[in-house]
């Protein structure tokens, strides 16, 4: 705040302060060099102004020491900035293992957010204070982008892929989130509020909200409804217990980690990766399952136990 006039957004997440410090450093560096250039130009322009119409100044070819100096100094500064910024970025990119997962689906022009307990919100996201939250996001149509300025986080939401974003709120309150990636006519209306609550208030809100059953329960119903059970429950298809995050051996001898992207692909394009020891008999569910339903099935699979390996890493 500067005379009551904001120069930065609220710092409301664990990573916000670190980003702001780097920002201040960069701003100071900018002001310093801009100042030097402006002052030098002004000084030279006045000190060496043309006094006689036909004067001929002495010529200077250049100076190697100066060239070296003004190559080396910026070089050192950008290396420092790069190292600082990149280490901060790497630290911020990794979600804590204990994060609560919230599913986000972007579509023209609204956000649908789904808590694991089954509460579903539109353009509003309630989160508890001080607990890491991981968003797993996808889009039903074009590329969107989930951006919460007060938390200094942003990630594209790409159709056909899962992207993740995490934060841990540090201050109760209500903060904007925006769609950052231009997505068509009502792009500017595709925004909402993150509401950060004290944990006990959050629990109260959660229990007071209408629930459609947990995500995993809904997934379990789909598991029966779409007859997944006839193969995956009988040994004709790979079983789901402790599948999530495990190493899966494929027919061609390679192995993959059973993460979100792999499971999603296996549902939509079953023929892409055949698990070793099974027949390629599974039909595609493309067009039959919505993005939301796929996420529910993923939640169900995750609820059946996950391997030790941390899943969902970059």
């Amino acid at each position: 705040m500067w005379f009551g006039f904001p120069l930065r957004p609220e710092q409301a997440s664990t990573i916000a302060q670190g980003i702001d410090h780097l920002y201040y450093f960069l701003t100071a560096m900018d002001l310093f060099f801009t100042g030097i250039i402006f002052l030098t130009i002004f000084y030279f322009a006045i000190r060496y102004r043309r006094r006689k119409k036909d004067e001929t100044p002495a010529q200077i070819e250049g100076s190697l020491p100066l060239e070296v100096a003004w190559t080396a100094i910026p070089l050192v500064l950008v290396v420092v900035t790069f190292v600082w910024s990149s280490s901060l970025f790497i630290r911020n990119a990794r979600p804590p293992t204990a994060a609560t997962e919230v599913f986000v689906i972007g579509k023209q022009w609204m956000w649908q957010l789904q808590h694991p307990e089954g509460v579903r919100e539109i353009d509003e996201l309630h989160v508890p204070l001080g607990r890491p939250i991981k968003l797993t996001m996808t889009s039903e149509d074009v590329i969107h982008d989930f951006f919460i300025p007060a938390f200094r986080v942003k990630k594209d939401v790409v159709p056909g892929q899962y992207s993740t974003l995490w934060f841990q709120a540090t201050k109760p309150g209500s903060y904007h989130f925006f769609c950052g990636q231009y997505c068509g006519v009502s792009h500017a209306l595709m925004r909402g509020e993150v509401i950060v609550m004290q944990p006990q208030d959050y629990e109260r809100w959660l229990s007071g909200s209408k629930k459609a059953g947990t995500m995993a329960d809904a997934g379990a119903r789909l598991y029966e409804q779409y007859a997944c059970i006839t193969c995956h429950g009988t040994g004709k298809g790979p079983p789901f217990v402790n599948l999530y995050g495990s190493q899966v051996k494929l027919q061609d001898g390679s192995t993959v980690v059973a993460d979100d992207a792999y499971l999603r692909e296996s549902i939509l394009v079953p023929s892409a990766k055949i698990v070793a020891g099974y027949e390629p008999i599974m039909p595609t569910f493309k067009g039959q399952l919505s993005e939301e339903q796929i996420l529910q099935i993923l939640a169900y699979i995750k609820s059946l136990g996950a391997a030790e390996r941390k899943a969902g890493q970059e």
Partner: peptide, 20 residues
């Protein structure tokens, strides 16, 4: 001024916030 503010965007950590 324009070139120096480019550094904010070349820097990964700050670009996450400033992108778009």
């Amino acid at each position: 001024m324009g070139g120096l503010t480019g550094l904010f965007l070349a820097s990964l950590a700050t670009d996450i916030h400033l992108h778009d």
